[in-house]
Write a protein that binds this DNA or RNA. Structure first.
Lengths: 227, 227
DNA sequence: ATGAAAGTTTAGACTGTCCTAAACTTCCAT
DNA sequence: ATGGAAGTTTAGGACAGTCTAAACTTTCAT
């Protein structure tokens, strides 16, 4: 009787999904994704990240070079985008169907994204009419993993004095979201950048009849388009 | 500076919730809940159950007497009822808001019940108008842990030839649910028991213009009331 | 009332994810 | 070019939840 090599069933756990999501997002912001960066974002120790990166590499979800950094494989990217699709669909659903505020949805989506079935995902997408954007203006990956194009610049770069339209607010922090919403800075709002202080100083914007000074780091996360 | 005794954070995990739910349901059907019974229902080995019962006892969620059996404490029962409330609210929500069939909701609810926040639970209940019954007619525990009274008997005991109304179908098996729905045996339907074969034999029921013979074990799970 | 069968618990091991502490590698300023 | 700081990996351990195998307890039929 030949001994059959027992194939490890190797599941993609919620934790793995979170790592992939984090790596995906960081890869968009920086060229190299390092162990410590991931550790900071995930709220775990670097040694835990190293261990997980080895696991992910074995699963062919990432390319991992010790001491250099990590990058998603196409497979890893696909998984990351599926999770992000879940997350953003859920956020939008909670707002549209259950009366959540845009500042309340992130935590809930962070958990649900890992556990909804394909069927529930499909029903939610259908109920929402296959939307392209979540409540923050973040694009929702399509089923095939493609992301809608975005040609937006941020308030930190937008041309001065020109009327622009907010298309996206990249932030997950509930209080900060409530703050910027309080200033009228929500997707769809029309604004003008009046002034930008030097040395990465505050950005002054006009919203309706009010003027507000925004920290540069915040301004960088508010994306606008012409119009 | 006084040293504060580090309180074990002892979380109630999804697995713990499943054990409590199982023990709760079994305690309703039998006087004693034994290790092996729990093991069968949960699909784990008896030794795993023993280990978990010890944990649950330490958490004051159950009263556990080795070799005798286990029973929920009031605290354990409260937790079980909260999970059951989640489960049934979710089942109803999926049917009402997202077009699920009553045979499709169980698996999804089985997972979601452990992860929805109090806030989401409240929004769902509100959206449904604080319902008393899920799609199978199972009562939904109230927020305070009280269960609506049920004075139903089953088709296995209902008086012969008398018109009765189905109020509840206690089954989680998707295919069986589709089968009984196909026979017209859904909550609200009006039926008559025509005959009951001896020795726990089949129960013959009249539904509309059709007559069906039901296995006694199935009949026991279809609850009816006068009318 | 006793011994085998059935049921239960204990002992010890494994997996996934995390940790701390120690060792190692890279980077950069001198 | 070199030595310390910063970053990273390795080693070893913890905990939750599972398993198998062995030991123990209860039950029941004779």
């Amino acid at each position: 009787m030949t001994k059959v090599a027992k194939r490890a069933p190797v599941e993609i756990t919620p934790v793995i999904e979170d790592y992939l999501k984090t790596i995906y997002r960081m890869a968009q912001e920086q060229s190299q994704v390092k162990t410590t960066d991931v550790a900071k974002r995930m709220g775990v120790k670097p040694s835990s990240v190293t261990a997980m990166l080895k696991t992910l590499a074995e699963l062919k979800l990432v390319e991992y070079k010790p001491y250099y950094g990590v990058a998603l494989t196409p497979l890893g990217e696909q998984v990351a985008l599926e999770v992000i699709r879940h997350h953003r669909l859920i956020e939008l659903y909670l707002v549209e169907a259950l009366g959540y505020g845009w500042d309340e949805v992130h935590e809930e989506a962070e958990i649900l994204e890992h556990v909804i079935s394909e069927k529930l995902e499909a029903r939610i997408a259908e109920h929402l009419g296959d939307p392209m954007l979540d409540p923050h203006g973040d694009p929702i990956p399509a089923l095939d993993g493609t992301l809608p194009e975005t040609t937006a610049t941020s308030l930190a770069e937008a041309p001065l004095r020109k009327r622009v339209r907010i298309v996206r607010v990249c932030d997950q922090h509930a209080e900060r979201l409530r703050y910027v919403a309080g200033l009228g800075l929500v997707p769809g709002a029309s604004v003008r950048v009046l002034e930008r202080a030097p040395f990465d100083g505050p950005v002054t914007v006009r919203v309706g009849k009010r003027t507000h000074a925004l920290d540069q780091r915040l301004a960088r996360n508010i994306l606008v388009e012409e119009g």
